[in-house]
Write a protein that binds this DNA or RNA. Structure first.
Lengths: 194, 194
DNA sequence: AATTTGACATACCGTTGGTATGTACACGCT
DNA sequence: AGCGTGTACATACCAACGGTATGTCAAATT
């Protein structure tokens, strides 16, 4: 089985995603032309539009989805490595900050994402991949009485925004202690909620 | 004096800024063409490039600067209306959240800004207009012993990011209590630092 | 009055994202 | 095995876009 047809299809789609991810990450969505992109991928525009009906933004959406999923998986894995709910929260937050060191995450997910797809669509993707985990963890901590009873949705949004900004800041600075500084500041804020 | 020459110059520049601010706010930077823009402003591309050497991004930069300054002024005014440093912080934060209800602020400053100008330049503008005030207020509170001694720079970044995200969320929701919910969540976080 | 300078308008250009058409080949069917 | 069909692209093309070079006319300067 497998089919040489479907196999080829998957290959071109994969290389298209991989190449565009690299280019978008290094120079930003707007600065990358389709001509350059398809040439780097070794295909033509015909192939691109065959795989991504919506053209450039559709391709970007697919790339962003991949980035989002990867980040979500890393964060979830870090959290699940801990047993105590509070430690899970801290581990997840820290893993996110580390993951956002990757330029692809920074530029594609945090900078271009909202501008290209619009904030609401970006928000929906973020919600599906990582924000939901955060809200979940917070809800569990509230239920366990670890942090004060309060609506978790707004709190999750605030924390998510704080971490996004922190991640961008981390990527730009050359201070080697920056990660620790931000992490401890974040943990101090979280700890204050107990 | 005044000069009919300089007066005319100021007029066209002003209408160009005003019109582009409106268009960028309603449909986003990428979706607005220069042709449409200059037609709506009643001038030609020649005029635009005469006033904004860098073309479209330069025009956007000028618009964004205006938005940033306005927000900064509103926030500063709200803070100065209070006397107690802690109340100043809360008032400033609340004023920011309210100010970001304006679609121009949301779309131009929070969504398109970082993508069009790059995050570092956006960050510099933000720092100059509002983030510096926040860091200042926090430093004062630390010095006064109201909140625990800690590096204020990372804390200010986290809070700034949290508020930016909260502002975007506020603008999108139709829940009338959203502003109060977010504000109280933010104040709870801030209060936990005391 | 003559000349220069500033504030635009007009005309044009290269590039871009997007599309319509062409083509070769794997695959199901008889 | 042969044949038609649909898939997976490649090629050629287009309209629109941001940007620029040049022209024009009135205000300022001398």
């Amino acid at each position: 089985m497998a089919g040489v047809r479907a196999e080829q299809r998957e290959r071109t789609r994969a290389v298209l995603l991989e190449v565009s991810r690299r280019l978008f990450a290094s120079r930003g969505y707007a600065a990358v032309g389709l001509a350059e992109l398809v040439q780097a991928a070794g295909v033509t525009k015909g192939a691109l539009y065959h795989h991504f009906e919506g053209g450039k933004v559709d391709l970007f959406r697919a790339v962003l989805t991949g980035v989002h999923e990867k980040v979500g998986a890393v964060v979830a894995a870090a959290a699940e490595a801990e047993t105590d709910p509070w430690d899970q929260l801290l581990a997840g937050c820290r893993a996110f900050l580390v993951a956002a060191t990757d330029p692809a995450v920074r530029r594609i997910m945090l900078v271009d994402g909202p501008a290209v797809l619009g904030w609401s669509e970006w928000r929906a993707m973020d919600e599906a991949q990582s924000a939901s985990h955060l809200a979940e963890a917070l809800a569990m901590l509230v239920a366990a009485g670890v942090i004060a009873a309060q609506p978790v949705a707004p709190l999750a949004r605030l924390l998510s925004g704080a971490m996004n900004e922190a991640a961008l800041w981390l990527a730009e600075t050359d201070d080697p202690n920056a990660l620790d500084d931000v992490t401890s500041a974040l943990f101090r804020m979280l700890g204050a909620l107990r």
